[in-house]
Structures are given as C-alpha cells and as structure tokens.
Computed example of a mutant assay.
Amino acid sequence: MGNDGAKQIVIAHGVNDAWQDVDQNRTNGPAEFASNLRYAVREAMKMSGRQVLLVQPHRVCSFDLLSWLAPRLPHPDALLAPYANAVARVGNEMKAEFSGRVEVAHLFSVPTRCDGDHRKSDMPDGLHATQAYSNKLAAVIRDAMNRLMTGAPTPLPTLTLMRAPLNASNKLEPVPGKDFQTLIVGRPHVTNWSTTDATAVSYQCRSDDPNGFNGGGPLAELVQAGYSTIVNNWPVPASCMWTVTGHAGTVTYPDTYTTTPVPDAQKPVITVTRSPMPLVAGKPFHTTWKAERAFSLTRYCTAQGTGLSAPNAAVALTSGVPIAGSPDVDEPVNEVAAAAWIGYPTTCTWSASGAGGTTTYTETFHTVTR
C-alpha cells in the first residue's frame, strides 16, 4: 500500500481465504485475520486523506465443489461467520480510531436462497453466485462506498435472526407445516443472527410459565452462525426482545420463542397422593408425587381466607428428592395440617412439561376437625 495516489482502499475477505485456514490447519484463523486486518488498515491510513472500505465475506450454500476438502469443512455459515464478525468488530474499532474514514460493507447479512430449482437458487452449484445475487452484493458494496466518499451518516443498525431445530443427523429441519422459527421440545436447535452497522447486540426472553425459557444478556458476537446446539427443554412460548446498538442509535426487535411437541411423543403423566384424606387439623399428613416423561414440573395452590396457599414454583419431578441443580431436598413430604385451614379448601394445580407437550393435573382437598 505505497503512495500510489489511491484515495479509497478496499479490503475484502472471502470464502477462499476462510477455507484455506482449514486446509492449512490454522487453529486461530479468525483471530489472526482480525490482527492482520487492523495492521492493513493502519498501513493504508499512513497516507493522508485515505479511506478504507472493509468487505465481509458473503454467505454460500455448500462446499460440495471442494470435494477434496468438503468433509473437513463445517457448514458454510459456521465457517464464514467468525470472519464476518471480525470484519464488523475491526470496522468499529477503526471507525473510532480514524474518525469515520473507515466503512464496512455487510455482505454476510444478505440472505441466500439455497434450495429450489436452478432459476430460484442464488448459487446453483452451491458456491458461485448467480448474476442476480451478485447484483445484490454489489449494491451493498456500492452503498457503503458512497457513504465513505460522501461522509453520509451511518444508517441505523439492523438484525437478521434465525432459529432452527436440528434432526438426528444434526441438519436443519423445519417442523412440518411450520417455519424454521418453531423449535421441537427435547431436540437440539441453533440460533443464528447477523447485524449491520452495529456495535453491540443483546437479548432478553421472558415467559409467564416457569417451564418457559427465561434468560438473556449481551452477546459477544455481532455475527453468529455457529452450529453449536442447545437442547430445547422449554415447551411453552417465550417473548424475547433483541436490542441492537450502533453508531446511529438503538433498534429493538421483538421475537417469539415458539416450540412444538415431538411428533408422536406421549404427554407427561402426573400422579399425586395425599394421606389421610381429608386432612385432619393438628395431625400429620403425607404427600407424594411423580411426573413421568417430563422435563419439568411446577405447582401452585390457592385457597380463600386462611387456607393453605403456595406460589407458582418449580418442584422436583419426584417428591422427596432434590430439584435438579439444587443440593436441597425439594420440600418435606410429611407436614401437619393447620386448624386455620378448616373451612377453606385448597386447590393445587400441577403442570408437567415434556417432549410430548404439557399435562395439567388439578386436585382439591379439605381440612376437617377430628
């Protein structure tokens, strides 16, 4: 990058660069690439007035053409995403360091159609783009270059999100009659996302049901398409909110975490016994329960007046044993009925969730005098 008079420098990283890291057994390819990219940008900036456009790799459909290497390569998205993430991260660093003289063309966020016949696919041979898809990529590069040359403001960040269940062969498999966003209870799944013009991304999921998914937080990657899997043990929907922050502001994206039972799987079975029945004030009573074919079990109890009540909470699948992940026994199975419960019957609702869906069991019991 000598003083050749060029004012705009384009630095691009593509699939050939990525698969060669695998071919040459480089175990730290993305990190080395990020370090080299920073060096290249700083070298380019030694000439006053220069501007640099960083170009992400774009998605591809398959590596079948690379027959000698394909068995060693991960899914194309999983291979390329770390490099796309590195371009985005280094781009953010260099924008701050060089006061806007660096821009990023976010090609990895351009969706790719990988199925259908020759006319509908963006890459009929899995690797080489059609003219129509190439035009989409060129438009992203053109717009980024225009922003760089004119000083136009960076646009608001965007997020593209995809969840998908995996089958027994660890391949993406949509639920029949549903889209890729619907997950199967008890089966592994992946969550992939890509952003444009973002500096940070986070999410938070909430479910009103204790059996649902609750969690979230900031994410390390601006682009994530790795195929590490998480088993979906949350059989009820959750409402999620993704927050993407960039130089131009913050945008939120609502998302629903939807699940469906495993086809043909049997529903959980709940068994609860209390003895004696009815309960006798001042006397001990014994409670046992068991949830079969279940991942989780919750229970809540309601009563009028001074009757026995209990908030909605997770309990062990079998009475008298610890809840998973807790060193303590769930609760005593032998208790003493209180006189204050007389005249105020208690209704307890138990809910068990498993691969076959959710089962609810309701019981009502009374407390009497001797």
Rank of each mutant, 00 (worst) to 15 (best):
1 M>E: 11
2 G>M: 06
5 G>A: 13
26 R>Y: 06
30 P>D: 04
31 A>L: 08
31 A>K: 02
39 Y>V: 12
50 R>H: 12
57 P>M: 00
58 H>A: 15
60 V>Y: 06
63 F>R: 05
65 L>Q: 14
66 L>F: 13
68 W>A: 14
70 A>H: 12
77 D>V: 12
80 L>Y: 10
90 V>M: 06
91 G>Y: 06
104 V>L: 02
105 A>S: 14
115 D>T: 14
115 D>R: 07
115 D>N: 11
118 H>P: 02
128 H>N: 12
130 T>C: 01
133 Y>G: 03
147 R>K: 11
155 P>A: 08
173 E>H: 10
174 P>R: 09
175 V>G: 09
177 G>F: 04
182 T>W: 03
190 V>Q: 01
191 T>H: 00
202 S>I: 09
207 S>M: 04
219 L>G: 08
222 L>A: 06
226 G>C: 03
229 T>C: 00
237 P>D: 14
240 C>V: 05
247 H>F: 12
262 V>G: 05
264 D>C: 04
272 V>L: 11
273 T>H: 13
274 R>C: 05
277 M>G: 11
279 L>N: 10
286 H>E: 10
294 A>M: 00
298 T>K: 03
311 P>N: 08
324 A>C: 03
330 D>F: 05
333 V>G: 04
345 P>I: 05
350 W>H: 01
356 G>Q: 07
363 E>K: 07
